[in-house]
């Protein structure tokens, strides 16, 4: 069985366990993903399941995407993504569903999402630099400070941490626990936070 699914971040809340401890959890709504195509090493170079998820109108899709769903004889979906497999898996056929029941309570999973965009951010927010003094005539409260030496080496070192675009990149949480699986509502509760804004697509797979 494939232990991976795509879903949407719903939001965070806190719940109680049976001993009365408070747990911070993030809810992820994962509607059943439909298998659209099965890729294998001989024809595609790697093993994967291509899945479609998220309801949409047919006129919102472009021709190549429409073609993929027409070939598989399936309803059109908003997103088309792949689940990579280590070994070729012939358990699944085109049109099969992958739903939240692939996960059990207590499983450790990796979660990937696109982090919130922060725009052009300074070094304090971006790299946790310390700020300068705020009084005694200081003009370097949130400034970068020195970026290198003088005539030797006559250049700024590569990879120097400076202000720039922050966020909006692919982030993976290495391991977090599944607290609850609500199969009827297609919801998964995972411990702690998950990268991205509410409503953004996240990918959950066994760690």
């Amino acid at each position: 069985m494939v232990q991976a699914i795509y879903g949407k971040k719903v939001g965070s809340t806190q719940i109680y366990d049976e001993r009365g401890n408070v747990l911070c959890v993030t809810a992820i709504e994962a509607e059943p993903c439909k298998v659209v195509q099965i890729k294998n090493v001989t024809s595609d170079g790697y093993n994967a399941l291509k899945v479609g998820f998220g309801a949409t109108k047919e006129n919102r899709l472009n021709k190549p995407k429409k073609g993929e769903f027409a070939k598989a004889k399936l309803e059109p979906a908003k997103y088309l993504k792949e689940i990579r497999l280590a070994d070729f898996n012939n358990e699944y056929k085109i049109g099969d569903n992958i739903d939240v029941s692939v996960f059990n309570v207590g499983d450790v999973v990796k979660i990937t999402g696109i982090s919130k965009g922060r725009g052009f951010a300074g070094v304090i927010k971006r790299y946790h630099f310390h700020r300068g003094p705020v009084t005694h005539g200081s003009h370097s409260i949130r400034k970068t400070g020195s970026i290198g030496m003088c005539s030797t080496p006559k250049k700024v070192m590569k990879g120097k941490k400076m202000p720039g675009r922050m966020g909006g990149e692919r982030v993976t949480i290495p391991g977090t626990k599944i607290i609850d699986v609500l199969a009827e509502q297609n919801l998964i509760l995972v411990k702690g936070s998950v990268p991205g804004a509410k409503g953004s697509v996240v990918y959950i797979r066994k760690a």
């Binding site: 719903v10 939001g11 809340t13 719940i15 109680y16 959890v25 809810a27 709504e29 609850d180 609500l182 509502q185 919801l187 509760l189």
Partner: peptide, 12 residues
């Protein structure tokens, strides 16, 4: 009821 409320509802 939104999805987050569904999660919380059984703990009230």
């Amino acid at each position: 009821m939104n999805n987050l409320e569904k999660v919380e509802s059984k703990y009230y």
